[in-house]
Computed example of a mutant assay.
Amino acid sequence: MTAICLVGIGKIAVDQHVPAIGGSADWELAATVSRAGSVDGVQSFTDFDQMLSERPDIPVISLCLPPVPRYDYAAKAIAAGRHVMLEKPPGATLAEVYALADMAHAAGVSLYTTWHSRMAKGVAPAKAWLADKTVTGVHICWKEDVRRWHPGQDWVFAPGGMGVFDPGSNALSIITEILPMPIHLRSAELFFPENRDTPIAAHMQWTQNVTGDFDWRQEGPQSWDITVETTTGTLSLHDGGARLLIDGNEVAAGADREYPALYDRMAELVKTNASEVDLSPMLHVADALTLGKRNVVAAFHF
């Protein structure tokens, strides 16, 4: 088993990363770094530099921090000769992730920009089914309750936090994976609470008749759906990609293995010092923030 250090012990780390590592035959959670969180039975640090110095035996770092501070941690880890795994979105900007990729290549270590929704059970068969199809239209409906999934986490509304595009990048990671043709953004409407710096909702229009509605104010049932119309039938993904239907017939459904699958892939990359850096979902976010018409809506408070 390979020793790994988990940095940032917040909700996503506790809910997803810790169980995924614990259930893997490839990994041993050897240390954590966090200002407040820890994992029972695992050595904990509050200082990343101290961990790098005292635990040279840990070759892999998984960063679960918010996007803004992630670059500095990743750069230090790479400089120390460690392989690095980045929670999505992989950074606060495109340029900094490209810089990390160059650093990792020069250092001969692996860098993995993870997109967990691509590992959902319905995504790979959806991609295969669409490969030879002519797509006539796509609609994304990605609406959830920020209070449920990011309770009290003000960083998501701070510059670099990406707002609704934090969960929205999950949908963008799926469409950039499954669509058989390229798309680019033509227009966007962004909705900013009057007291926040990032959008709480967005409507987007791409080429190829692709549209998307994203909203962080959805109460009750949550919506993580993508519908793809083709000349030969309709494909739909639900529950964030876990369920696949073709012409209304269930094709794929199953238990969530998104994060275990990410760690399976990281193990493969580390064995060969290979990297996997895909920023295509972030390109659409950057384009939305460039092209988007800003609308101010009511203040938001947790």
Rank of each mutant, 00 (worst) to 15 (best):
M204V: 12
A128F: 01
L6R: 13
A92S: 05
W142R: 03
L237D: 00
F192T: 00
V60M: 01
A188D: 12
G41V: 09
V84G: 13
P19Q: 02
A80I: 04
V14S: 07
G248C: 06
D145R: 05
H203A: 12
A128C: 02
G137A: 09
Y112I: 05
E276F: 15
D26C: 03
L283P: 02
T134V: 13
I61G: 12
I226P: 05
I200G: 15
T230L: 00
Y71G: 12
M85W: 12
G108H: 07
A101V: 06
G37P: 05
G8C: 13
I4D: 02
C141Y: 03
V18P: 07
A274T: 09
L245A: 04
E87T: 03
I58D: 10
E87D: 13
H301S: 03
V14W: 01
F157Y: 10
W149H: 14
P159N: 12
S275H: 05
S275P: 04
I9M: 00
V7P: 04
K76T: 11
V97D: 03
V97L: 04
D278S: 08
M181C: 14
R265T: 10
T2M: 10
G10Y: 03
I226C: 06
A188H: 11
E219M: 05
V285S: 06
L63K: 04
Y263T: 10
L235F: 05
M1K: 11
F302T: 12
W129H: 08
A131Y: 03
G161A: 05
R148Q: 15
I178H: 00
